[in-house]
Design a protein around this nucleic acid. Structure first.
Lengths: 241, 241
DNA sequence: CGTGATATTATGGTATACCATCATACGGAA
DNA sequence: TTCCGTATGATGGTATACCATAATATCACG
């Protein structure tokens, strides 16, 4: 046999990939993970609240095996922590941690934004523009969750356009850990205005391929959020016991 | 009763904390996690190799519950991935991912290093100096693992001195995903020399409180490693199937 | 000799059973 | 009344049992 004829070229391999039938083997565990994570992020469980395994079994209708594996996953993500001799609780966040998270976000998001400003193609720019237009249309409603979703899509576009899936993954994970904080921040006076305004600055810088300006605007965007979060957190005194 | 007399001050609270008896409830799961993670990092399992649950049970002498929870943890860490209809395998790494990891490391480590150069106290500087001296003493042996450990301690000192536990956690996790690559990189000609040299540059910049120089040296340190890793990875053709 | 159907096995997904430990409640004694 | 000891229940840690499915081997038929 002529090996050469059958050796898959890179192009053939790519084409074959589009043939793949994605048969998402939706396991109970994945569904439970999704549900529980969303519940925690949405604030259905408050920070520090105990997550009793058997109770969760009843609430989600699955067995402890599933619950425990899900808890391990969320624990590794940082959304759940296990108190010694007590079991899993919803992770608490104090300002020391939250501040670090904002710091990491600054480091990663400014990098992504600058990269995007250097290399973004037309499609990416159009996508960003669309997201911002939707945001403008919706920001009147002052709906924190809507704005949050649009903000997420904005940054997701920026990260993924540059092929920074891993960094985006990290940012997503960190954001879920400060989800409550983000919602509270967005509910603050003027944040529903200043946030989108900063994002437009970022977009403008990207559109005219100005990495420095994009970086500066991005840093300002996050630092403003961090400042608001700090005032909320220290005034609320949500310290880690 | 006079409340004031019994209200714990911050100082008393701190002193009380040192009284705490840390009773590490060493669970089977934690031990198994440690073992398996180290085994993967050490290359005892090769990338892509299947991790059959029942086999691991025999090898580690624990039940499947434990193994499965450990696998979930490692999966979330990125060290293990589950192939559909096949189960868990040791995560594969291609250059696209490795490059992203080096990028994130650049973003986080340059930030930490700059911060350290701005704020490091004498104790931190002394610690860094000691680590480097040990490294110099050992680098003659060209032992990749020794150098790796010292490098880790060097950066750990930098991150933790600035209170960047979360960022350090992220970096540690990312490094474990490219552990093989790092060892291979260190086995390369001259890397056992150039690496420590770069670290000394970083240290010198920190010692004279020069954030910009520290940042530049750190970026150079990582980018050199990335370049070597790239040549190794693309030549070996370790692509993700 | 090859091809397709069927039996067997391997393997992950899920549920459940058991145990040790810790917290709580209760009761008796000083 | 207070304090201590015991009993009981709640809870997480661990092991095991069962099931569905996919991979593999076997065999019969062309």
């Amino acid at each position: 046999m002529n090996q050469k004829l059958f050796a898959p070229t890179a192009e053939i391999a790519r084409n074959l990939e589009s043939l793949r039938i994605d048969t998402p083997p939706v396991t109970l565990r994945e569904m439970a993970l999704e549900r529980l994570r969303n519940a925690i992020i949405a604030g259905l469980f408050s920070p520090g609240q105990r997550l009793v395994e058997r109770t969760l079994c009843d609430q989600l209708g699955v067995s402890r095996s599933v619950i425990r594996e899900v808890l391990r996953h969320l624990e590794t993500e940082g959304l759940v922590e296990t108190a010694p001799k007590q079991g899993p609780i919803v992770a608490l966040i104090d300002w020391h941690q939250a501040r670090q998270i904002y710091d990491v976000r600054i480091a990663l998001e400014t990098t992504a934004v600058a990269d995007c400003a250097r290399n973004a193609d037309t499609a990416t720019k159009n996508k960003l523009k669309t997201v911002l237009q939707d945001l403008d249309r919706n920001s009147r409603k002052n709906d924190a969750l809507t704005i949050l979703a649009a903000t997420t899509e904005f940054y997701e576009t920026i990260f993924l356009s540059g092929g920074h899936e891993i960094a985006w993954d990290i940012v997503k994970r960190l954001n879920s850990r400060i989800s409550r904080l983000r919602v509270m921040t967005l509910s603050t006076t003027n944040r529903t205005v200043s946030g989108p305004a900063r994002m437009r600055e970022i977009f403008n810088a990207i559109e005219r391929n100005d990495p420095e300006a994009a970086t500066a605007a991005c840093r300002a965007h996050i630092m403003e959020a961090a400042r608001i979060a700090e005032s909320l957190l220290v005034s609320a005194g949500q310290a880690k016991p």
